[in-house]
């Protein structure tokens, strides 16, 4: 019994969150294209689109690692802010400075990730509460590092990373790179298998010989590093430091993950979905703008899309379960 391609597409649509997100993206993009005209497909237009979504996309990748494992990481926003302020106060310039910034980003993310990992996997704290604590800590430190907005990010970062190489936006390349790296980590390593295993059934994972604590710890470190990279990209976008980033950042991250079809119960979903989810959020904003929806109501659309994605997600779970039974 061979399914037609169409049938397979429909199946994938319901069971694969990333695919559904992609379809949603395309549909919204068509609306965007119609209302915006040629700008929508110009190099600049697309570069802007990628630039707008890249920070949330990387943050969403970080969050995906933890959510796949059945946890929550609220420290993403804290790490982003802390990284941003530290990068802004560093004095290096030129390529050396850019490299230093990258090291700062990875270092800060790694350290905070280690703390999270330690609190959750060794001490056994509830992830959502522990990361809430570290997130608050981070934003406190950020205020000490940079008492008011200011500082500079080396032009090498600020300009190169937000530009386009020929017709290809740099942000797109970065998104691709981050997507690839995280995909390899999750799908092509034992560590990744461990994350999926842990998210589904901790006891079984343990009995399968997976070093659950170590996997959990490493996942928080990875999430921290990716959050640091998100802070790095934010610095590139704004070209400066600002210790006052709002909580809406973390909400958008979760929204991206949810739209990307990652199951909040853990063990199901992909980073690709989260990245597209972040893209949808940015695109949605632009689309609503271009069709002229009052920005009062942006939230209604954001919320509804999240619910829609989750609804289809839970629907697909029911269907696949039913299919498994029959």
């Amino acid at each position: 019994m061979r399914n037609s391609i169409l049938e397979r597409c429909f199946n994938a649509l319901l069971t694969n969150g990333a695919f559904l997100a992609l379809v949603m993206y395309l549909i919204i993009f068509i609306i965007y294209g119609i209302s915006q005209g040629s700008y929508a497909v110009s190099v600049y237009g697309i570069t802007v689109l990628f630039n707008n979504s890249i920070v949330i996309a990387i943050a969403a990748v970080a969050e995906t690692f933890i959510i796949l494992m059945g946890g929550f990481d609220l420290s993403v926003a804290g790490i982003v802010v802390l990284t941003n302020t530290l990068i802004a106060v560093q004095q290096g310039a030129g390529v050396g400075g850019a490299l230093l910034c990258l090291i700062i980003a990875i270092g800060v993310g790694g350290v905070i990730g280690c703390i999270n990992g330690f609190l959750v996997s060794r001490i056994g704290l509830q992830s959502i509460a522990a990361t809430l604590g570290t997130s608050i800590l981070c934003s406190g430190i950020a205020l000490l590092v940079l008492a008011q907005p200011g500082g500079y990010v080396p032009d090498e970062i600020a300009y190169t990373l937000t530009d386009s190489i020929g017709p290809i936006p740099v942000a797109a390349i970065i998104a691709l790179l981050i997507g690839l790296i995280s995909w390899i980590l999750l799908r092509k390593t034992n560590f990744g298998a461990g994350i999926y295993a842990l998210g589904r059934d901790r006891t079984a994972a343990e009995l399968s010989g997976i070093a659950t604590r170590s996997v959990e710890f490493r996942a928080y470190v990875m999430a921290g590093i990716f959050s640091g990279l998100a802070g790095f990209m934010l610095s590139a976008q704004t070209g400066t430091g600002d210790p006052h980033l709002s909580n809406s950042f973390i909400l958008l991250t979760f929204a991206a993950v949810a739209i990307g079809g990652v199951s909040f119960d853990g063990g199901h979903g992909s980073v690709i979905g989260s990245i597209i989810g972040a893209g949808i959020l940015a695109l949605l904003q632009k689309t609503l703008f271009s069709v002229g929806v009052s920005s009062f109501y942006t939230g209604i659309f954001q919320g509804s899309i999240m619910l829609l994605a989750m609804l289809v997600g839970s629907l697909s779970l029911i269907i696949s379960k039913r299919r498994a039974v029959s």
Binding site: T238, L245, S246, S248, F249
Partner: peptide, 15 residues
Amino acid sequence: ISGSNVEKQISDYQS
């Protein structure tokens, strides 16, 4: 309304 999020306001300016 750009909220208090720099990212959002950048995106809005670009739009």
